[in-house]
Write a protein that binds this DNA or RNA. Structure first.
Length: 729
DNA sequence: GACCTGCTGCGGCGTG
């Protein structure tokens, strides 16, 4: 067979040689053979900096050079979830395309309207766009879509793994369906991804109707040496004790990270502020130049750019104390080590973070995991005694080492995003019939879990006199109603995800960043923000602005957040770690003491032989051996039957009240399939952007599909009472 | 019990 390199177009070959590459990487050769030898859809899976972009684009651009399409229109559509990524990739592609005379157009909110207007007039080459800007194109220029994409041969979707089951991922898949409808032919899809946990599901996501036809090219081996340490810390119940742990961790970070580039994932924006402050003080005390900086989404763009530039600069040692802002693929170069404070929420993000270090040949990947546990007293709760945070850290590391990570959740209805896409299609076309809408979105598009009756209910809800998002014309055509019109006209419509309201924080005329409005802020209060200390001078509620001045002391603000979902496999692993007597080699002595203590307490509760630990006649701790979704579902079922329930990772603490029936009986009934009203205590059902326009029955369906697992309840309860029976018999 | 992401069209003003 002709080598992959030989099959590339001349100018592309020249570019490869100019890079000084001796040969194409394995993933690049294999991708080139498939792209140039077939029409197949492809997933290219490799770690950051694994050469995925070139693997897709070298052959695609070769096709443009050797076999140009005379029709007008963009030849290649590239979609990425971050503006920064588009800017980076446009620069790299410009370099390759320059000599081949192929146009490269970055397209997102920060690109000037002049560039966009020119591209619309004369569309060609590669366009790099965000899902939101593509959405805007459909809504504002619906009639131009067939012309703009008449010549498009391929859609390249970057960071596919981050959008698989998210609202934005569903939106993007809907847009791809609509694009193919507009040009009346399929367009090859190429997904670029980090290594995925479940490749079958990923293929299905890329091309639902022909998942088996999706070719998979994964980067082979090449895994760097991994150096791991899990350090245990115990914090007291007093404020003073809590500070002592923070200082101990800050001391360790300061001693080990100074002088090199590192990322410290602190877990929350508040923790980022605390640790950045502690580390700054240590530099000042030692009369050393500052090299520790905070980085999270509430900080001003200016400050974040500054930190990112420092990370890229090889001459300035820089450690960013950050949230998941620095987890995604923007180019900050290689870092020496990664630290993680507190247990990670998912194995997938843990892997993504670790992938930031050890990327260069011969350098190890280094992960320091800090586990902070509460000091146990006579009054301590069992969850503190079982050291659930430490266990989750261990479980995540073990699963990471085994190559596992969370698969996407595929059965959610995504009704909020469905409302968004209904409005968008009506706006794109001016009007559309209900049956046609159903065909585009539910039969051909990504909303296949939505059956006809639910779809009709959604249309009724958003067409009701209360909501007035849509209305029906005499000929049956669905049109935008007055409120729908107003919604779609505003630029805030294009994003499918929700964003909270915020104050802007300003010091000496410069914006430091933003704070959620639920912080109670008054003049005179002290704040830690952007790695420095401030005093509030003025609060302008109307303009949502807070003016601050430097201060000598401060407290970190509250940033809110939502509870995360822990996967079933992570919980199972936590329990098997508890039931084993093995000492993982990466634990330090303090962490090992904590684990040994947790194992003793687990045995004391008899959990080795039963899943129910009775606290009294009608109060117990249940070991659900299940992740957040199932555990929460059981908690709601028990609350509905009159119990007070507290939830923990994989455990429930259940207390009977005077009127509640015996817990044993309730569990037996649930095991037998008895139905209970999981929404008996009217929990809030508004989570997503377009939820406020839906009816309560629809909101419950949406919650049941994505946030609960009622179908798992009987089996979960059978397990609970079965294992309990074995013990009593 | 947490984090992140995105945005058009148009009017008004200054400058060359």
């Amino acid at each position: 067979m002709t080598s992959a390199f030989d099959r590339l177009a001349r100018p592309i070959q020249k570019w490869v040689r100019d890079q000084g590459w001796r040969e194409l990487r394995d993933i690049q050769s294999r991708a080139a053979q498939i792209i140039l030898g077939s029409e197949a859809d492809i997933i290219l899976a490799a770690s950051t900096a694994g050469g995925k972009t070139e693997a897709a684009f070298l052959p695609l651009l070769s096709q443009l050079v050797d076999d140009a399409d005379p029709r007008p229109g963009f030849d290649i559509l590239y979609i990425a979830p971050l503006k920064a990524l588009i800017t980076d990739q446009a620069r790299r592609l410009d370099d390759i395309c320059g000599s081949a005379g192929i146009a490269v157009t970055p397209w997102h909110g920060d690109i000037s309207s002049g560039v966009k207007a020119r591209a619309i007039k004369n569309p060609k080459g590669v366009v790099l766009i965000t899902p939101e800007s593509l959405e805007a194109l459909f809504i504002r220029r619906g009639l131009d879509i067939p012309r703009l994409f008449a010549a498009t041969r391929a859609v390249v979707i970057d960071e596919l793994h981050t959008v698989l089951d998210s609202e934005r991922g569903i939106q993007m898949r809907s847009l791809l369906t609509r694009l193919e409808l507009a040009v009346k032919r399929p367009i090859r899809r190429i997904g670029l991804s980090a290594t995925l946990g479940d490749m079958v599901l990923a293929r299905h996501y890329l091309r639902p109707d022909l998942a088996d036809g999706v070719e998979l090219v994964e980067a082979r081996g090449g895994d760097a040496e991994l150096r791991l340490q899990l350090r245990g810390y115990v914090q007291g119940t007093q404020d003073e004790g809590a500070r002592a742990v923070t200082d101990a961790i800050a001391d360790h970070l300061f001693g080990n990270l100074r002088g090199s580039d590192n990322l410290v994932f602190a877990g929350s924006r508040q923790a980022v502020e605390i640790y950045a402050d502690r580390l700054r003080l240590r530099c000042e005390a030692a009369h050393l130049p500052q090299e520790f900086y905070p980085h999270h989404a509430s900080l001003s763009r200016e400050h974040r750019d500054f930190v990112e530039r420092r990370l890229k600069d090889a001459n300035l040692p820089t450690t960013a104390v950050c949230t998941s802002t620095l987890e995604l693929g923007i180019d900050i170069g290689d870092v020496t080590s990664v630290a993680q404070i507190g247990a990670p929420f998912s194995v997938a993000s843990c892997r993504q973070r670790l992938g930031r270090s050890g990327r260069r040949e011969g350098r190890p990947a280094i992960l320091r995991q800090y586990a902070v546990e509460a000091k146990v007293t006579a009054k301590s709760n069992f969850s503190d005694r079982l050291r659930l945070g430490l266990l989750r850290s261990i479980a995540a590391i073990e699963l990471l080492l085994e190559g596992w990570c969370e698969p996407p959740q595929s059965d959610a209805l995504h009704l909020s995003t469905l409302v968004h896409q209904i409005l968008s299609i009506i706006a794109e076309r001016g009007g559309v019939r209900a049956d046609h809408l159903h065909k585009i979105l539910c039969r051909d598009g990504p909303f296949r879990q939505v059956d006809t009756s639910v779809f009709v209910e959604v249309l009724r809800a958003i067409g009701s006199p209360d909501t007035r998002l849509i209305e029906q014309a005499g000929d049956g055509l669905l049109l935008l109603g007055p409120d729908g019109e107003r919604l779609v006209e505003h630029y805030s419509f294009y994003a499918v995800f929700q964003t909270p309201e915020e104050y802007r924080l300003v010091a000496a005329g410069r914006e430091l960043g933003t704070l959620p409005i639920d912080n109670l802020i008054a003049p005179g209060m002290l704040l830690i923000f952007s790695g420095r200390r401030w005093q509030v001078v003025e609060v302008h509620d109307h303009d949502r602005v807070i003016i601050v001045k430097p201060a000598a002391a401060g407290v970190p603000p509250i940033f809110g957040g939502d509870p995360g979902h822990i996967h079933d496999c992570v919980i199972e692993r936590m329990l098997s770690v508890l039931e084993s007597d093995h000492r993982p080699i990466y634990l330090d002595d303090a962490a090992w003491d904590l684990l040994a203590e947790a194992r003793c307490n687990y045995a004391d509760l008899q959990f080795g032989t039963t899943r129910i630990a009775w606290l009294s006649d009608n109060a117990a701790i249940l070991a659900t051996h299940a992740g957040t979704l199932k555990t929460i579902t059981l908690a709601l079922a028990l609350r509905a039957t009159g119990f007070t329930v507290q939830t923990h990772d994989g455990f429930l603490e259940v207390f009977g009240r005077e009127a509640s029936p015996p817990l044993n009986e309730v569990l037996a009934n649930l095991a037998a399939g008895e139905e209970v009203d999981l929404f008996a205590h009217a929990p809030s059902l508004l989570f997503e952007k377009f939820h406020p326009y839906l009816t309560e029955p629809l909101l419950k369906l949406d919650a049941l599909s994505a946030r609960l697992q009622p179908e798992a309840l009987p089996e979960l309860c059978r397990q609970l009472i079965c294992v309990a029976d074995v013990r009593s018999a």
